[in-house]
């Protein structure tokens, strides 16, 4: 138990520290690297919770894809982060004030939280006990069986988004040379090359 607690505090502390570093370091590349560190430590927290599937997904998707994407954006776009960060100190008090108000509101709301006993029976998606099924199985059961309708609808929404992006930005340009594989394969040596006798001392 003590090891588990130690691991939790280690992961949690590193997560919070690297999250702070993400927004405070000057170099944007370092910032993305700290973000990756935060993702890894959150994955560790998920493992402590017994959610091994989520932990792996976090590493694969966020570290493997999203963070790399961020890295590309940071390196390819020449954004002046120093300029963006100007006025950070100036707006700090008002930002802190708003954050504090939100925190107080959340505390008040959670403090006044009362659920009537009937609600316990109406919970939307009760998860089965973790001893009986694996993580992956439980998630699959929910996403692909119980919520298959929502899963498919979300898929169609993404398709619409894709069509929209293409409709609004794709333009057919003239003078673009496209690769036509069938024509390339159908070409024969006789059509594309001729053998000529060239007399010495003269051109063709």
């Amino acid at each position: 138990m003590i090891i588990q607690a130690l691991a939790f505090y280690l992961f949690a502390a590193v997560t919070v520290a690297s999250a702070v570093a993400v927004i405070s370091v000057r170099n944007p590349v370092h910032s993305v690297l700290f973000l990756i560190l935060a993702f890894f430590n959150s994955a560790g927290l998920f493992i402590l919770l017994g959610a091994e599937f989520l932990a792996m997904i976090l590493v694969v998707v966020y570290v493997g894809a999203v963070a790399v994407l961020f890295m590309f954006v940071v390196m390819m776009l020449d954004i002046n982060f120093v300029e963006l960060r100007q006025g950070f100190l100036q707006y700090l008090p008002i930002g802190a004030l708003i954050g504090l108000i939100l925190l107080v509101e959340i505390l008040v709301m959670v403090g006044g939280w009362a659920l009537s006993p009937e609600i316990a029976s109406a919970v939307a998606a009760p998860t089965p006990a973790p001893e009986t099924v694996t993580n992956t199985h439980a998630l699959g059961e929910l996403i692909y069986t119980r919520y298959v309708y929502l899963f498919q609808a979300a898929g169609i929404i993404l398709l619409v988004a894709m069509i929209g992006a293409i409709v609004l930005t794709h333009r057919r340009r003239d003078g673009v040379r496209r690769q036509k594989v069938s024509e390339q394969i159908a070409r024969r040596a006789e059509e594309s090359a001729t053998v000529r006798q060239v007399e010495s001392g003269k051109g063709i």
Partner: peptide
């Protein structure tokens, strides 16, 4: 989800 599907197509 229905609302979003409709709206997204309409924005475009």
């Amino acid at each position: 989800l229905g609302l979003e599907m409709q709206s997204l197509a309409l924005y475009v």
